[in-house]
Simulated assay, not measured.
Amino acid sequence: MNQHARAHAECKALRCAVPDPAALRRFCAETARIAVGCLHAELVLYPKPGLVSLVDNGSHTDMNAATFMRSMFSLRHYFSAICRAGFDDAPFAVLRQLGIDAEARMLRATAGINTHRGAIFSLGMLCAAIGRAKAQAIAPGAESLRAVMLIRWGEELTAHTRPGGAASHGLQVADRHAASGAREEGALGLPSVFEVGLPALRLTLAAGRGMHNARIDALFALMAHVSDTNVFYRGGQEGAATVRCLAGDFVAMGGTAHGDWRAYALECHRTLTAQKLSPGGAADLLAATCLVHAVARP
C-alpha cells in the first residue's frame, strides 16, 4: 500500500470510529435516561432511613416525592449535555458551567429546594466520563470509568474542592467538622461509589437477593462509610455518629441476608426521622452506584 492509500485508509478508519450525529445523540440521550432512572430508583427505594420516598417524607417537611420528580425531570437534558461534553473532550470549566446551569433549573423546578445538588455533581461527572470513554472506544467498566474521570479532569476536580468564595452548606459543614462532601468525593474519583457502594450492591446480587435488596445493602454500606455533610448540617457530630452506628450495625448483622433486616431498617428510619437526620449524601452516592452498575461491563 502506497503512502496516499495508507493515509486514506487511516482517515476512513477514524471516520468509522466516530458515531454519526444521530447515533451520538441517541447514545447521550440513553445515558441521560439511565441516569434519571437511577435517581428514580433511589427515590422509590424503601425502607430508607430519614429519606424521602413514595411512602413518606422521612425527616423532611419541605419536600416530598413530587418535589423529587420535578427535579429529576429538570435534569434530563443536563445529563445528555454533559455526556456529549465528555465525548467532545470538554475542559472542566465547561462541565462545571453545565452543572451550575442544571442546579439553577433544579431550583426553579423545586421552588428553591435542594433535592439533587450532590447528584448533579456526581452523576454529572460519571456521565461525562461515559461520554469520554465512548469517544476513546474504551469499554465502560467500573475501573475504566473512574480512570477516565481522574485522568481527564482529576487536577481540576482537586482544585474544585475549595472554590474561592463558595459558602454552600456542604462547604461550611466540611470546614467545621472535616466532613467529606460531593466535591471531595469527586476529587478522589468517587471512592465511596467504586470501593463501597458498588461492591456491596454486586455482592448482594451475586448472592441472588435481587436488585431491591442490593440497593438497600449498598445504601446502608454508604451510610456507614460516608462523612455525610447533610447529616452533619442537621445533627452535628452526634447525629453523624448515630447514622454511622445504626448503618454499621445493619451491615454487621448481614444486611438483607438477615431474616429481620426489614424490621431493623424500619426502626432506623423511625429513629433518624425522629431526630430529623437525613443521609442525603449517601442517597446521591447510591444513585451514582446504580449508574455505574447499569453501564459498566464486568
Rank of each mutant, 00 (worst) to 15 (best):
G170F: 02
T115C: 14
E195F: 03
T289W: 07
L150E: 12
A147V: 00
A274C: 04
R84S: 02
I151Q: 10
S192N: 02
A224W: 10
V173G: 01
G118L: 05
V226F: 06
M149W: 10
L14E: 15
R146M: 09
R33Y: 08
N2G: 04
G197W: 00
G248H: 10
A90W: 11
S59A: 12
L203R: 14
A241V: 14
S71M: 15
Y233H: 11
M106V: 06
E238Y: 13
G170H: 01
S74E: 06
Q172W: 08
D62S: 09
R26F: 13
S192V: 04
V55F: 03
L157I: 10
L201S: 04
G254E: 04
R26G: 11
A135C: 07
A178T: 10
A7P: 13
V44L: 07
L286E: 08
C268S: 14
V94A: 10
T158V: 15
P163G: 08
G208S: 02
A257K: 03
A137Y: 01
K48G: 05
H293F: 11
A187C: 11
A187I: 10
A111C: 09
A214C: 02
L98R: 08
K276V: 05
A296W: 09
M223W: 06
M223D: 03
L39H: 04
A240F: 06
R108Y: 02
I34N: 12
M1W: 12
R96L: 06
A133T: 03
S278C: 01
T229R: 04
S144P: 03
A207V: 07
G118N: 02
G58Y: 02
S144W: 07
S71W: 14
V148H: 04
R176W: 00
I130G: 13
D101Y: 01
E185L: 06
K48L: 02
Q136R: 12
Q172V: 09
V36H: 00
I151F: 04
Y264R: 07
I100C: 09
L14Q: 15
Y264E: 01
G181M: 02
L190K: 06
R105G: 14
M125N: 13
G141S: 15
M106S: 03
K134V: 09
G197I: 00
L14D: 15
L201V: 03
I113S: 00
D260W: 01
G210F: 00
F220R: 01
G254D: 04
L126N: 11
T31A: 14
A187K: 05
L219G: 11
R215H: 12
S180L: 05
C290K: 03
L286W: 03
M72Q: 13
A240D: 05
E267M: 15
A283R: 05
A9N: 09
Q172N: 09
L266Q: 01
R76Y: 09
H60G: 00
L14C: 14
A7C: 15
V292L: 11
L24T: 15
M72C: 12
A166S: 09
E10P: 09
A240E: 06
L171G: 01
R209V: 06
P163D: 06
R105D: 15
L188H: 05
A7Q: 15
A32G: 08
C268M: 15
L45K: 05
L222Q: 00
G164L: 04
L98W: 01
K12H: 14
V251Y: 05
G50M: 00
V94N: 08
G197M: 01
A104M: 14
A182S: 00
A179I: 01
R15L: 15
C16Y: 07
P49Y: 11
L201G: 02
R105M: 14
